[in-house]
Design a protein around this nucleic acid. Structure first.
Lengths: 205, 205
DNA sequence: TTTGTGACCATATTATCATTTGGTCACAAG
DNA sequence: CTTGTGACCAAATGATAATATGGTCACAAA
């Protein structure tokens, strides 16, 4: 059983330390090249010229290192998507943009960085903290878009806004959660536009 | 690689034959008790007092037997749901009923007939014909409900009806497809009502 | 105190080999 | 023709032993 380190757990060792970042860089390279499971903690240690034991002065576990890599990976997606969403002119366009953007970035990860994708999928399956953060950030973005749309009179206001956000998130989930995405690849061409349209219909005042 | 027998493939041997039904009955018992993978074709043969080779006069493969069991299982669900849907007074109520009914039956299969559920999940993952039929039947039911709702003036009519059906099916899919359901068990209490409400909003004229 | 390690352990993983299993076929009895 | 089977094979599966891995700890040098 993998116990997921709570986001509240303080990281072991000094947070700002040269060796810590060296470990992360080595992990980034190794994980994305050989995969999380195929690289050993000793591999990471050797590649930066230290002993395995020293790694554990900075990280609780191999998983803790994986979580950092996973976080970076998901935060990159969030940043990309935020950029696109910001460019969209209307709340409706933003909604289409967040959905298509998340899917596009997920697909790219799948096809161009498979090993990193696998970490993300595994993390989602085990509910590692980074994936919970990812979900929350997406919900927060959704909330902002819905709010804006309601204020602009573009979206209906009767439904409790939390319910709206949760429901829309549920609709998108199969295509933005890495673990689920791989079961839905064959739908990825049609689903985002089809579902965006449905969601927008549900939002019409 | 498991090649899925096309629904067009004619069944091997006489379709209406005492031994054929004996095999199916034995399979039903064994599969639901020991699981599809743990029961061997020889087990089935022994339990009805014939040799393994004779089984293959009636079925192309073990999978073909599994598909029959899977079909029965899914058809039972469809029948249950159809019954409930018929009782619902309005198209809106029918929509809520089909969603909650499919989920309820899926959950029951999961918790009370785990071995059969596993066949269904595996079948969905490998896209066995029975699961395609299942999907089609659900879409057909949806189509009927939407049609009825449109005729009654309860649902909007601008969106192409096929698009509506496909989109709604996509929304429900994570909770009615056995393979996906198991990744969404923790959402099963809220999702159906939340999503039904969203879908109904999207259908409002 | 901070930086750093080799030796160690329980569990997980892999490599190896023996056994089962799905599936076919030639053939026989009624 | 229909009913029925034992013998057979390649591939999958399972059992087992050998190795590798995640993780800890006592200890040492700077």
């Amino acid at each position: 059983m993998n116990k997921s380190t709570s986001p509240l757990t303080p990281p072991r060792g000094p947070v700002d330390h040269n060796v810590r970042t060296q470990i992360i860089e080595a992990a980034d390279q190794h994980f994305s090249h050989y995969g999380y499971e195929k690289t050993t903690v000793s591999d990471l240690a050797k590649s930066i010229g230290f002993s395995k034991a020293y790694i554990y002065k900075f990280f609780d576990s191999k998983q803790a290192i994986g979580e950092v890599i996973c976080t970076n990976c998901l935060e990159t997606i969030i940043a990309n998507v935020k950029e696109d969403v910001a460019k969209a002119p209307t709340p409706s366009a933003k909604l289409r943009s967040i959905f298509s953007g998340l899917v596009k970035n997920g697909i790219e990860l799948f096809f161009q960085d498979r090993k990193l994708y696998e970490i993300a999928a595994f993390a989602a399956g085990e509910q590692w903290p980074p994936t919970l953060v990812y979900e929350d950030e997406i919900k927060q973005m959704l909330l902002n878009i819905i709010r804006e749309g309601r204020e602009a009179g573009e979206f209906e206001r009767k439904t409790p806004i939390d319910e709206t956000v949760n429901a829309i998130h549920l609709v998108m989930r199969p295509f933005i959660n890495p673990l689920l995405l791989q079961h839905n690849l064959h739908l990825v061409d049609d689903a985002p536009s089809l579902l965006s349209a449905l969601v927008l219909r549900s939002l019409s005042p």
